[in-house]
């Protein structure tokens, strides 16, 4: 409970900072909006020539794409500061600050920043879902909405955990932003149906870097109502396992950490 209150204070603090740099925020959000828009133009051009992509219609592809942005933007909004751990905070010796405070270090790092740029992605996400859902004949039950929430939470955990693990590598190596970047880029695979990839890529994005569970698998369940156990259950299992691993690596890293500052 104390942590929720702290998180509110951190966000309020951050929003004050943000008011100082309104133009920055606007440019960041517009940039992310642009990046998504260009991808959508690409999908539009493809579908101007073909009726469906390996059995998936235009609206279904838009839905999967929109769904992939739910977890991506939530993770982006809340845990963006993890990037800085690998890029800068440890290398510059600024991490010592967190160790002197009476709150959990991981919580502190994450709560310190609130990346409003993510609203650019969220806006795209909402637009895509609003455009695609009315045209899709999706199964709807009383448990559909709770399942959406569960899927969104655990899919976000997949992103966050991968970022925690790769950021924590910097406790040993001083800098790991490039490793985070490399693994993070694989998330783009999740925007399209897994069936278009070859066997090797499918195995990697399902079992090793489980980005397929951040979008395609849960989205395909909501579209077709098939395989709830694998699609939603898999998301929960992947998110939980990775998060446990992330906490383990982070705590081991803290023990190995030697300050880098002067």
């Amino acid at each position: 409970m104390r942590y929720f209150r702290l998180h509110r204070i951190f966000i309020a603090q951050y929003l004050k900072k943000l008011m100082e740099y309104k133009a920055d925020f606007l440019l960041g959000a517009v940039g992310l909006l642009f990046a998504q828009a260009i991808q959508l133009i690409f999908i539009g051009i493809i579908f101007s020539q073909i009726p469906d992509l390996r059995g998936w219609t235009y609206e279904q592809i838009l839905f999967i794409y929109g769904f992939s942005l739910i977890s991506k933007s939530l993770d982006h909004l809340f845990t963006d500061n993890l990037w800085m751990v690998g890029y800068r905070i440890i290398r510059k010796g600024d991490f010592d600050k967190y160790l002197t405070r009476p709150i959990n270090t991981l919580f502190h790092v994450i709560a310190e920043n609130f990346c409003v740029d993510a609203f650019g992605e969220m806006l795209t996400c909402v637009l895509l879902l609003c455009v695609s859902i009315p045209k899709l004949n999706m199964p709807f039950h009383w448990y559909t909405i709770p399942l959406w929430i569960v899927a969104a939470i655990f899919a976000t955990l997949i992103y966050t955990s991968l970022k925690i693990i790769t950021a924590a590598i910097a406790f040993w190596t001083k800098s790991s932003g490039h490793i985070t970047h490399m693994l993070y880029m694989a998330n783009d695979f999740s925007k399209y149906p897994v069936s278009i990839y070859n066997r090797f890529v499918q195995i990697v994005i399902t079992y090793i870097l489980p980005f397929a569970f951040t979008a395609y698998f849960p989205a395909s369940y909501f579209l077709t109502g098939k395989d709830p156990l694998f699609c939603i259950g898999g998301t929960v299992v992947a998110g939980s396992l990775l998060f446990a691993l992330a906490l383990f690596v982070w705590n081991r890293g803290l023990k190995a950490y030697e300050s880098a500052g002067s």
Partner: peptide, 25 residues
């Protein structure tokens, strides 16, 4: 090297998307 691997992945995603496009059309 890490940056390059990250970037070249997007080229491969496009490759698979186009392959699917040609198969579908």
């Amino acid at each position: 090297i890490c940056f390059l691997i990250g970037e070249i992945m997007s080229a491969f995603i496009m490759y698979f998307v186009w392959k699917a496009v040609f198969l579908s059309s």
